[in-house]
C-alpha cells in the first residue's frame, strides 16, 4: 500500500507544549488532529515534515460550550459530534448539516472542526501520488513552478473544499488563534486568503484554538447546499451557505457564501441593498442567484467542468434560499 514518509513523532500533552514546539519548529512540523486530510496528503508526499505534531491528547481543545453570549467549539470536536450535538442542531442547523455532509461516516468520526476549517486546498493536479505528479511535471503548489489549471497563472487556484467554513462565515463566526506568545481573534470571513498554496492567515507557529458563533446568529434562517457527484465520500464541487435575519418587516440582513470554486470561499457582496425589507421568497432567491452567478468564476480545478459548476451556482443559491425560507 502507499506508505507514509518517515517522520519524528511528537505528542504534546497540552496546548502550551504544542505551541512551544511550534515556536521553534513550525516550518518543519505538520500538525495532525483527525488526520483525514493530513495522512492522505502525507502518503502523496504533499507534506514532508520532520515532525508530526499530534494534537489528539489536547483535551482542552475538545469542548462545546453554549452560553448566553455565544456558542464556542473546540477545534478537536469531531464533525460527527457537531452533526449530532443537540444545541448545534437546534441553534445552528446549517452547521450541523454541513458537518453531516462531510465525506463519509468514518471520516466524520475522525475529522475535526479545526481540521475541516484548515483543510488543505484541493486540485486535480495536486491531490495525486508522487508518481503521478512526477509524470505531470509537478505544479506550483508542491515541487513545481507551473499551474496546470491556469497555464499562465502564478498563483495557485486550488479549491477551498471545507464544508463547514462557508457556513461559519455565513453565521459570522470567528476563530481564536494562538501561538507561544499569545492569541488573536479573526472573523472566519477574514480567515481565508486567495492563495491556494496556503489559503489562510495562520502564520507558522499558530494554531486555531476555538471557533465562536455569536449569539446574534441564533435564529437566523440558514441553509447549506452541497454539489457532489456521489451522495457520500466526495468533497464539494460547489457549496453554498446562506443565512438571513428575517423579521416581520422582511429580511434585515443576509450572508451568502459560495465555495469550492477557488482558493477561498467567496462571500457574495452587495447583499444588504438586495435583501433589505424583502420577504425570503423565490423572487429574492432569484435576485441572490443572479448576484452570485455574476460574482463567481469557477475554474477547472476539481471534477465537473467550470461551465457546469458556474451554471449550478444560481441553482444552488436558489435552493439554499428556499431551504432557509422553509419553502418546500
Amino acid at each position: 500500500m502507499l506508505t507514509l514518509p518517515a517522520f519524528e513523532w511528537l505528542r504534546p500533552a497540552n496546548l502550551d507544549d504544542a505551541l512551544a514546539h511550534l515556536a521553534n519548529h513550525a516550518a518543519e512540523s505538520l500538525v495532525v488532529a483527525g488526520g483525514t486530510d493530513a495522512v492522505p496528503n502525507l502518503k502523496h508526499r504533499l507534506h514532508e515534515p520532520r515532525w508530526i505534531v499530534h494534537l489528539g491528547r489536547l483535551d482542552e481543545l475538545r469542548f462545546v460550550r453554549e452560553s448566553e453570549g455565544a456558542l464556542s467549539i473546540g477545534p478537536l470536536v469531531t464533525l460527527s459530534a457537531i452533526a449530532r450535538h443537540e444545541g448545534i442542531r437546534r441553534d445552528f442547523p446549517s452547521l450541523a448539516r454541513a458537518a453531516s455532509l462531510v465525506a463519509s461516516p468514518q471520516i466524520r468520526n475522525m475529522g475535526t472542526l479545526g481540521g475541516n476549517l484548515c483543510l488543505d486546498t484541493r486540485c486535480t493536479y495536486y491531490n495525486q501520488t508522487y508518481f503521478w505528479r512526477d509524470a505531470l511535471g509537478f505544479c506550483l503548489k508542491k515541487d513545481g513552478v507551473r499551474c496546470h489549471v491556469v497555464p499562465q497563472g502564478r498563483r495557485c487556484v486550488a479549491a477551498h473544499s471545507s464544508d463547514v467554513s462557508p457556513v461559519l462565515i455565513s453565521l459570522d463566526a470567528s476563530v481564536d488563534i494562538s501561538n507561544a506568545r499569545g492569541s488573536r481573534t479573526v472573523p472566519v470571513d477574514e480567515f481565508f486568503v486567495g492563495d491556494g498554496v496556503h489559503n489562510n492567515v495562520l502564520v507558522p507557529g499558530e494554531l486555531v484554538t476555538r471557533v465562536t458563533i455569536p449569539a446574534a446568529s441564533r435564529g437566523l434562517r440558514a441553509a447549506y447546499q452541497k454539489l457532489r457527484p456521489r451522495a457520500a465520500i466526495d468533497f464539494p464541487m460547489l457549496s453554498v451557505a446562506f443565512a438571513a435575519r428575517v423579521s416581520d418587516g422582511g429580511c434585515e440582513h443576509a450572508r451568502l457564501v459560495v465555495s469550492a470554486l477557488g482558493a477561498k470561499p467567496r462571500r457574495i457582496g452587495g447583499l444588504d441593498a438586495l435583501v433589505k425589507g424583502r420577504p425570503l421568497d423565490d423572487a429574492l432567491g432569484e435576485a441572490l442567484a443572479e448576484a452570485a452567478y455574476r460574482q463567481c468564476r469557477p475554474l477547472t480545478n476539481v471534477a465537473y467542468d467550470d461551465a457546469y459548476r458556474h451554471e449550478m451556482v444560481p441553482v444552488f443559491v436558489r435552493r439554499a434560499v428556499r431551504e432557509a425560507g422553509g419553502i418546500a
Binding site: 486535480t124 509524470a135 511535471g137 496546470h148 471534477a303
Partner: peptide, 25 residues
C-alpha cells in the same frame, strides 16, 4: 496533453476520483 504536461495522465487513479457508487447512490 496541455501547455505544461504531456498526454496520457490518468484523470484520477484513486477510489476518490474514480467514483464507484456508495450505498446511498
Amino acid at each position: 496533453a496541455a501547455v505544461h504536461h504531456g498526454p496520457g495522465l490518468h484523470d484520477g487513479p484513486s477510489l476518490l476520483d474514480y467514483r464507484i457508487p456508495t450505498s446511498l447512490d
